[in-house]
Amino acid sequence: MHGMINRAIQCFMRDTYGADTWEKVAEKADLGFDNFEAMLSYPDQITLDVLGRAARQLHKPVETFLEDLGTYLVSHPNVEAIRRLLRFGGENFTEFLFSLNELEGRAQLALPDLEVPTLKVEHIEDGRFRLSCSSAMPGFGYAMVGVMRAMADDYGALVFLEHQGWMDSGEEIITINLLEAAYTEGRSFELSERIGGEL
């Protein structure tokens, strides 16, 4: 996995549970180092080991851990850049959902080696959408649930999300019920970071 992904997992643990927790996980996963470098690549097994150790350390299922990670990526001030890039997707939550179809291509323009899952969003019926997610990293769909939940808050939308499990092909399916597009005001967003000095 790309260092960015590993680094995200590390920063999530450090910012949410403290440096001690991260150090324990790094030690138990037998990394042999304390910090992932964002611009290096690591064998996939390392990422899986870290996820497994982290979930055990925090006494929660890996799925929950990944969902919390997804929420963190959008909502924590330390990783504000990710939230901003996702907000480039569209002016409302529906636009954002459809922009996920292009996320892989967009990310690869920036970082060709980054393993972004292939996401496909379809409109099923009024206010109901279906996201399929295929990724080299099993469980990425759970992280997407966290990302979408936090993005819904960001846009001020009220949504109900449900991870439907795995297809035989390894794809994860998530259904999205958009109950109200403008439930709250949401957070403001400007394309230019210079104007959008909300923080």
Partner: peptide, 20 residues
């Protein structure tokens, strides 16, 4: 922008490899 970014990225990658 894509070209410039790729060139810079390549340099960064090499620097990373050297530092590592």
């Amino acid at each position: 922008l894509v070209e410039a970014k790729s060139a810079v990225m390549e340099e960064t990658k090499q620097l990373n490899a050297r530092l590592q």
